[in-house]
């Protein structure tokens, strides 16, 4: 086989192994133009940070003579501190995430996965380390494939899930993507555990617009996606006001929780474009620096 056909076959193989999720995530990530960023303080790194006057204890080698020649004192070149951060992702894979309010909308899980992978792509490009439940955080492009495999698991059997704190690296970052419609106590526990480890992060609540509007009326029997919960009503339209109140209360509680532990909380609807959530999440993750 000549070189050209070998290259081609390899390229095709590579192309086949690129699944839609990754393509979408890369596409989404590409919409955000970012530069390399630092930590805005002096430390080890590549980027120039500032000149400071040399004082006792600095090695003679570290004096920047060009700058010093311009003035009478001696200056040391400082570099920006850049350290790879560990980010661990959690995507709620429970059955409630498989809900889609309309035929033309993808289920919430798809949106959550895309967001997670796009975020991972961005972070890995920025040199961070990204991990997920079961995968310790590692840098580099190869981690994307591993992340993708971990994400593309089928839905779990229970209705509502709770985040796992096991693989979190202390003083790292975390991203929770879920609808947070289940019991809030496990979430509170997880958050406190993460806060104990010094992990700061971001909670993105992914909701379907139908869950936000509650457009149901008439005699209805509501069931949860896994079938464990059931509620029957004669006039669904009447429940709307109270449902929305409860939803708002829940969101408020989640926001309070997040604030208490120093995290960020945001609600995203699958009807909106994903860039908005990605932009927010990325900004919230970096805001701590």
């Amino acid at each position: 086989m000549s070189l050209a056909t070998d290259l081609r076959s390899r390229a095709e193989t590579l192309g086949q192994s690129l699944p839609a999720l990754l393509a979408e995530a890369e596409h989404l990530a590409a919409t955000l133009m970012l530069g390399e960023h630092g930590r805005r303080r002096a430390g080890q790194g590549d980027e120039f940070w500032q000149y400071r006057p040399a004082h006792q204890g600095d090695a003679a080698r570290s004096i920047d003579w060009r700058r010093s020649a311009r003035s009478d004192a001696h200056f040391v070149r400082e570099r920006e501190w850049q350290a790879a951060q560990s980010v661990s992702l959690w995507v709620d894979g429970s059955r409630s995430m498989g809900f889609s309010g309309a035929k033309d909308r993808a289920p919430k899980l798809d949106r959550a996965r895309v967001l997670a992978l796009a975020l991972a792509v961005l972070l890995l490009r920025g040199g961070e380390r990204v991990g997920i439940a079961g995968l310790p955080p590692r840098p580099g492009r190869a981690q994307i494939m591993a992340l993708m495999d971990a994400l593309e698991r089928d839905l779990a059997t229970d209705d509502y899930g709770s985040p796992q704190v096991v693989g979190m690296v202390p003083h790292g970052r975390a991203v929770f993507l879920s609808d947070f419609l289940g019991d809030l106590d496990p979430i509170e526990t997880a958050l406190t555990a993460a806060a104990d480890r010094g992990v700061k992060g971001v909670m993105v609540q992914v909701l379907d617009p139908a869950e936000e509007d509650f457009p149901f009326d008439g005699r209805t029997i509501f069931e949860s996606m896994g079938g464990s919960l059931r509620h029957e009503t004669l006039k669904a339209g009447d429940l709307r006001g109270r449902y929305l109140d409860r939803l708002a209360t829940r969101k408020a509680r989640l926001a309070d929780l997040a604030r208490a532990v120093g995290w960020h909380f945001h609600t995203h609807h699958t009807g909106e474009p994903a860039q908005m959530a990605l932009l927010w999440a990325y900004g919230a993750l970096e805001g701590g620096r």
């Binding site: 209705d159 139908a210 029997i221 949860s224 009447d238 109270r242 939803l247």
Partner: peptide, 23 residues
């Protein structure tokens, strides 16, 4: 008349709500 069955994750929020009228 027959009710409609719906699968709705937000049912967790509906638990405990009673209908307004005793219709």
């Amino acid at each position: 008349p027959a009710p409609i069955r719906r699968r709705f994750p937000g049912v967790a929020l509906l638990l405990g709500l009673k209908d307004a009228e005793a219709e």
